[in-house]
Design a protein around this nucleic acid. Structure first.
Lengths: 152, 152
DNA sequence: CAGTATCCGGTCTGATACTG
DNA sequence: CAGTATCAGACCGGATACTG
């Protein structure tokens, strides 16, 4: 087991994990991102799916745009008038692995024994895919063999 | 780019990701888990590191224990009296890959260009390790080749 | 549709103090 | 140390209404 520490090796104010938590570590924000990664883009679609108060949704979307996770674009269907859409930026797309990993955690530990409603698979081989850590050569490294290295 | 969806393929109430977000998707909870994964175990150590109000810390720890993420154990140093400690359960340890992935995301997108204060490496080879998805044979699968499969 | 405005009750935050 | 008690203020959640 991990030894007891009086404090973390990295102070909170220079910790990128802490910054990330600051940016997206909030219930509604995470639920918005979940929907977003499934392809939901429009205000009312988010609102209906999540049942989130409109004022709160408005604020969260603005934060996500401000933090560069979503981009507010204008989309025009022919015959209809232009509408805004919230599209994931590269940074937003970068959260996909994080939420996939959290989904798997939910399957393993928050499911009450229920089978997972979705699984992640390889497009061609249809093999199941799971989150893991790989070294520079793309070989899997067991969690037990990974270490944290502090930069001096 | 991902096609627009009117709603997510999985309803919120059967979604394990949503459940996971419900359990740990909150700022303080995530920060507690961060410290926890670094080895912090005691009430006052959490409190000092995070600057979290004591009442709130008390509540969050109770939630985490109730959700089976932390276990409240009693530890006895010789010569001193027994003290409680909050130790990660197996479920709690299972969150390590999630927070590692989020750390990497923070390094990539929330760092303002600063170098990462920590890196994850292989214990022996010292090679850098990064989060990825692997198939059943432990081979890396690019995100672009993964698909979501709905269970019928 | 995509928001903003408003209102209300509740929880969270933050600070400080107190207890075993 | 490890909490509970208390309190003021901010923010949130939920509902409803209004506007372009």
């Amino acid at each position: 087991m991990i030894p007891r520490a009086r404090k973390s090796p990295v102070p909170l104010d220079t910790c990128h994990l802490a910054k990330a938590i600051e940016m997206i570590g909030d219930r509604w924000t995470l639920l918005i991102l979940r929907a977003s990664l499934f392809g939901v883009r429009r205000f009312d679609d988010f609102q209906k799916e999540l049942g989130i108060p409109r004022t709160v949704l408005s604020g969260r979307l603005a934060n996500l745009v401000e933090n560069g996770v979503l981009e507010k674009q204008t989309y025009k269907e022919d015959g209809k008038r232009a509408r805004p859409e919230y599209i994931l930026t590269e940074a937003g797309e970068g959260l996909r692995p994080v939420l996939m990993a959290l989904t798997q955690w939910g399957d393993d530990f928050a499911s009450d024994g229920a089978l997972p409603p979705i699984t992640f698979t390889h497009a061609k081989s249809r093999q199941k895919v799971r989150p893991a850590f790989v070294d520079e050569d793309g070989r899997e490294t067991p969690l037990s063999e990974t270490r944290v290295s502090l930069r001096r």
